[in-house]
């Protein structure tokens, strides 16, 4: 993976394919549950597709833990997670996994 921009397009393509959306309907700010109407089984589907494409495994509940940390940092509660869970956050997470680098 050359850059985070390439990664963003790839993740958007995966998300769009899974949710049967046109890629141009998905962007970094799209919130999975609120804007894209994803359900928990869709997140699993997207996760499996990402694991298969990028060759790493999510640890059990890793995304949830990440979002909880962000929620705590932003001083919001668990119920705000749907608000926080965007395509961009997923891209950051995958970027960290495959490059070892934190997003800017």
């Amino acid at each position: 993976m050359e850059s985070r921009t390439d990664l963003t397009s790839e993740v958007i393509a995966i998300v769009a394919k899974s949710l049967l959306l046109r890629p141009e309907m998905v962007h970094e700010g799209s919130r999975f549950f609120l804007d894209l109407e994803a359900e928990s089984i869709d997140i699993l589907d997207i996760r499996f597709a990402i694991e298969s494409r990028f060759g790493f495994k999510f640890q059990n509940d890793e995304i949830r833990e990440l979002l909880q940390t962000i929620a705590a940092e932003q001083d919001v509660t668990e119920k705000d997670i749907p608000e926080l869970f965007t395509v961009g956050r997923l891209v950051d997470f995958v970027w960290l996994k495959i490059s070892g680098k934190k997003p800017n």
């Binding site: 949710l19 049967l20 928990s40 869709d42 589907d45």
Partner: peptide
């Protein structure tokens, strides 16, 4: 096994495939 509990007429293609 793995599934989503909802009416069949609301199951989306990716969900069908995964199950």
């Amino acid at each position: 096994a793995l599934t989503t509990f909802k009416p069949l007429h609301q199951v989306k293609p990716n969900q069908w495939d995964l199950v």
